[in-house]
């Protein structure tokens, strides 16, 4: 699926969330460079997804941004048959991908029809430049 990219109705921009949670900025900056990086506690190694200022396991405020494989499997998925927002044309699917690192990200499938989606399907990350300001990470069938 792809977004229609309706200029009148742009896709909600994640940077807007960054106003409240600047912790997320490094994540979106990496995506912009077509890289997937996640935050990890520098003390105990716990993955911090979503990004946060303190490790909930060991309460350390010390963290690092680490490149990840971008490989995982579909953990769950939904398909919209009625559009909730003018930027998105139905039918389209949203997947929950479990990365090899064990953390899960919400995204869209690329080149996989909704009736082909299966829990457990291996996928790889790809990047889509929506417009000058916005790049999104998506997932396609693993090679």
């Amino acid at each position: 699926m792809t977004a229609t990219g309706d200029a009148e109705q742009p896709i909600p921009h994640p940077a807007l969330w960054g106003v409240l949670y600047r912790n997320s900025t490094p994540f979106w900056e990496a995506v912009k460079r077509h890289e997937l990086e996640l935050q990890r506690c520098a003390q105990c190694g716990h993955w911090l997804v979503p990004p946060r200022p303190m490790c909930p396991k060991c309460r350390s405020a010390d963290s690092e941004w680490v490149p990840v494989s971008g490989h995982g499997t579909i953990y769950s998925w939904v398909t919209y048959h009625e559009s909730p927002h003018p930027a998105f044309e139905v039918p389209y699917s949203v997947v929950l991908v479990e990365l090899d690192e064990g953390v899960r990200l919400v995204s869209n499938p690329v080149d996989i029809a909704s009736d082909e989606l299966e829990i457990g399907m291996p996928v790889d990350v790809v990047f889509e430049d929506i417009d000058d300001d916005l790049t999104l990470f998506k997932f396609t069938r693993a090679a």
Binding site: L20, Y21, R22, N23, R52, P53, M54, A61
Partner: peptide, 10 residues
């Protein structure tokens, strides 16, 4: 120069 969430945690 920080998030309100950061400061709340501290």
């Amino acid at each position: 120069g920080r998030d309100e969430l950061d400061m709340a945690c501290e």
